[in-house]
């Protein structure tokens, strides 16, 4: 009995410690004091300020724009790369697999610095496009790695079966192979989206001076002032969105399981 209580409380204490900082920010997003810890009474003022703060709203917009554009490009390149590698010869595939793992273990700062040096050396100005290129470099390997297992699991004969039934290679790819690996493509897209959303290092090195994302904006004002209180409202928002995404994700997964079980049952 005591053991059980101890075991349970251990988990809860860990969870509590993990979420405590976020929880603090959320609580203090409902008061308008300048620093966390001082309670000036309940108010939604910070949320009003948040939408008034044009610089911050622009940063949010920029973050989303970079994340979506780079995630889409990464997903296309990563998926095609995975398919290409899967159908190429063993030696080429081994080589590709080796180099795609490098960006994952490589320190981000090294990647950021080397990209920055490269673009400076080629005297290419830092633009939105270059920032997207940086994010694609960061995330493309993750797309590759989430698509590859789906390809390996796939029955290798189904592509041939499609050709056999009269589909051109392109049709076979679109109608048979892509639907089969779609779950991998989607999780690759989500992964690169989240990676890109909270990226700081690469963005800091490759952005135009006037262009700010959430992380670089906060970093910038932190250097001079204390954190503006509206940021507490923003983090609450971001956390809320994350919670919603997780809940929706879990619900759809459950639904799928249920419908599959029903089909099994009808048998």
């Amino acid at each position: 009995m005591v053991k059980k209580v101890l075991a349970k409380s251990y988990v809860y204490i860990i969870l509590f410690l993990m979420y405590l900082p976020v929880f603090l920010l959320i609580v203090f997003s409902f008061t308008d004091s300048d620093s966390v810890g001082i309670w000036n009474g309940f108010t939604f003022k910070l949320y009003g300020d948040l939408f008034q703060n044009k610089e911050l709203m622009q940063a949010v917009l920029n973050t989303l724009l970079v994340a979506f554009v780079s995630a889409i490009i990464s997903t296309i390149i990563g998926t095609l790369g995975a398919i290409g590698a899967y159908y190429s010869r063993k030696r080429a595939r081994k080589f590709l697999e080796g180099i795609t793992q490098l960006p994952i273990v490589n320190a981000e700062i090294v990647m950021a610095l080397s990209l920055a040096v490269l673009f400076v050396a080629l005297s290419i100005p830092f633009t939105f496009f270059i920032l997207v290129v940086g994010h694609v470099v960061l995330t493309v390997a993750f797309v590759y790695l989430s698509v590859k297992p789906r390809l390996v699991q796939m029955d290798p004969n189904i592509y041939e079966a499609a050709l056999d039934l009269g589909a051109t290679p392109r049709n076979a790819l679109y109608r048979v192979v892509i639907p089969e690996i779609l779950p991998g493509i989607i999780s690759g897209f989500m992964l690169s989206l989240t990676l890109s959303l909270d990226d700081f290092v690469i963005t800091q090195y490759l952005k135009e001076p006037s262009f700010e994302t959430i992380s670089t904006y906060i970093q910038k004002i932190l250097a001079k002032h204390p954190v503006p209180p509206e940021v507490r409202a923003l983090t609450t928002f971001i956390f809320l969105i994350a919670v919603i995404v997780v809940i929706v994700n879990n619900l759809t997964a459950k639904k799928k399981q249920k419908s599959f079980k029903m089909q099994e049952g009808s048998k």
Binding site: D155, N157, I158, E160, A161, A162, L163, D164, L165, G166, A167, T168, P169, A172, R175, V176, P179, E180, L182
Partner: peptide, 27 residues
């Protein structure tokens, strides 16, 4: 293969898992 009037029944069937029976046959 897609230009040959020849069709194959594969050893492990190689049916398309994302399609139902009708869609498989109609492919």
């Amino acid at each position: 293969p897609y230009k040959r009037p020849i069709n194959t029944v594969f050893q492990k069937y190689a049916l398309f898992p994302t399609m139902n029976v009708y869609e498989n046959i109609a492919f």
